[in-house]
Simulated scan of single mutants.
Amino acid sequence: MSTLTDAPSGTRSNTRNRLTSGQLPRLINWYTIAGSVVLSAAILSLLGFNLVGFVVLAAVIYLAGISVMSIVVENRRRAMDRFVRGLIVVFFLVALAPLVSTLWTVLANGLGVMSWGFITNVGGKATINPDTLEVVRSSGAWQAIVGTLEITGLATLFSVPIGLMTAIYLVEYAQPEQWLRRTVTFLVDVMTGIPSIVAGLFAFSLFTLIFGPKAFSGLSASVALSVLMIPIVVRSSEEMLRLVPTDLREASYALGVTKFVTIVKIVIPTAIAGIATGVTLAIARVIGETAPIFIAASFTNSLNVNPFADAMQTLPVMAYTSYKFPDQNQALSQSEAWGAALLLIILVIILNLAARLVAMIFAPKSSR
């Protein structure tokens, strides 16, 4: 009798021992990372230090070390979990490395020229130094800032109504098998893959046919950017409108509200946060374009606030021309290029923060 009683107890004990295991220290990941860094630096100090090799070797040592320790102390299932999590983190850092490197390079080279005078002055003006009687060129990016804001603003003014109305038609009015809906969807997909230089050539050709040769203007550049913005606005707005629950529409219809009023008062306010985010993504997509603006609006060092006539300067074009075609003071031109790139990044960050603020203000409030 005692043997029968002991057998199940022994079986339960063995099962529990197989399912339970040890536990590595809570900070073992950080300890392993520190050890991997030290060991990788020690090995490469003997073979010749290389930053890329150092990072790769440290990642390999970390993955191997954490996996072996987990197998010994814990079990194979936990070891595989730690290995996969570590591998995901490594790939995430690898994907993040170009962004960090780009930001660091722009900050390191652009902060030296950044000043209030550089932001507010118009670059390219020649003055004579009274002491040395040398011609000194002023450094500034105000003409590029004004041109960027005007061209991007006009492109947004053209693109957002067209893109939003198209998305409303595709979601609210068009039937799934309607030929016009399929045609519009196909054209939007085609426009999504249009190279930016093709959009610039299209706008330049259009304005050349209408106004004659060399019809450079900010309006022409804004039309080129609109071609790139419209499909992004359509796709993002369409997805946001589809996320609005059908119950909200049906409840509005049940109260006798018309379809148009339902869209304006119910659907769009519900999806306004996502729509604002999509519009911001579209602006960020085109605000750094160089080729279409360079073709359609050319470039200039003078301030031009009239987008309907003459060439205009933008920050990405200023960065390109200053670096590619420096003047006699090559160091000044290259510093201006880095300063323009830094200003462009700051402008994109401001736009993203503004979109977040708009999304927070106009997002539907949830009741407790």
Rank of each mutant, 00 (worst) to 15 (best):
T5P: 00
D6E: 02
T11P: 05
N14W: 11
T15Y: 15
N17K: 13
L27V: 14
I28A: 15
N29S: 11
S36E: 06
V37N: 00
L39W: 04
A42V: 08
F54A: 11
A58K: 07
V60Q: 01
I61M: 10
L63D: 06
G65V: 11
S67H: 06
V72F: 11
V72W: 03
V72D: 07
V72I: 13
V73C: 14
V73E: 14
R77D: 03
R77S: 05
A79D: 06
D81M: 09
D81Y: 05
R85F: 05
I88T: 11
I88V: 12
F91V: 12
A97G: 08
L99Q: 12
S101H: 03
G112S: 15
V113K: 14
S115Q: 09
G117D: 07
G124H: 08
K125P: 01
A126G: 02
D131I: 09
S138P: 01
G140H: 00
Q143M: 11
V146H: 02
G147W: 06
G147L: 06
L149Y: 01
T152Y: 02
T152Q: 03
L154F: 10
P161D: 15
G163D: 10
I168F: 09
Y169E: 09
L170W: 07
V171T: 14
A174L: 06
Q175C: 05
P176V: 07
E177Y: 12
Q178M: 12
Q178L: 10
T183M: 11
F186V: 01
F186L: 09
V190P: 00
V190A: 06
G193C: 00
I194Y: 08
I194L: 12
P195M: 04
P195G: 01
S196A: 05
V198T: 13
S205F: 03
I210Q: 03
I210D: 01
F211T: 13
P213L: 12
F216W: 12
S217T: 05
G218N: 05
L219G: 02
S220D: 03
V227L: 09
I230H: 05
P231N: 03
V233P: 15
R235C: 04
V244M: 14
V244C: 13
L248R: 02
R249L: 03
E250S: 08
A251K: 00
Y253C: 01
Y253S: 05
V257R: 04
K259Q: 14
F260E: 08
F260L: 13
V261G: 02
T262E: 10
T262F: 12
K265Q: 10
K265P: 07
T270K: 06
A273P: 06
I275V: 14
T277G: 15
T277I: 10
A282K: 15
I287A: 12
G288R: 10
T290G: 07
I293N: 00
A296G: 02
A297E: 01
L303E: 00
A309F: 14
M312L: 12
L315K: 04
P316Y: 11
V317W: 07
V317R: 04
M318K: 10
A319N: 02
A319E: 04
F325V: 11
F325R: 01
Q330T: 12
S333R: 02
Q334M: 13
G339T: 05
I346F: 13
L347E: 01
V348I: 13
I349V: 15
A355F: 12
L357H: 08
M360V: 00
F362H: 00
F362P: 01
A363G: 00
